[in-house]
């Protein structure tokens, strides 16, 4: 995935079954963000792989004051990249079993 300066990782082990999963997001390189970032640490949240949209979570982070509106796309993309990777891994496991 592209280095967006925003790191998103699994906050729990992926059992490959449940749709809602805990993720942890933090800013690794604030120079890649357009707005001034208030260093508040790592943000942990749950994300539903089947029903949720990464950009919506990014917008909620903006509304909660973690990021500025100008960076909502980069945050959304960072989450989307990680979510895609999780889904891709799950697909591989499923097709490996079949």
């Amino acid at each position: 995935a592209e280095d967006t300066g925003v790191r998103v990782e699994l906050a729990e082990e992926d059992d490959g079954k449940k749709s809602s999963i805990a993720l942890r997001l933090w800013v690794e390189d604030q120079k890649k963000l357009k707005g001034k970032y208030k260093d508040s640490g790592a943000i942990e949240f749950t994300f539903d792989l089947e029903t949720e949209v990464p950009e919506t979570v990014a917008q909620e982070m903006v509304e909660s004051g973690f990021f500025l509106e100008i960076d909502v796309k980069i945050v959304g993309k960072s989450i989307r990249d990680r979510v895609s990777l999780i889904k891709w891994r799950r697909q591989r496991i499923v097709s490996g079993h079949n």
Partner: peptide
């Protein structure tokens, strides 16, 4: 303080905790 902070937004819960220094880049 290293205690986690909880922020609610539109029904979602964000838990904020310090990032381990080993995970930070360029700092």
């Amino acid at each position: 303080s290293s205690a986690a902070q909880v922020v609610h937004s539109a029904g979602r819960r964000f838990i904020v905790s310090p990032v381990p220094e080993s995970r930070l880049k360029d700092q």
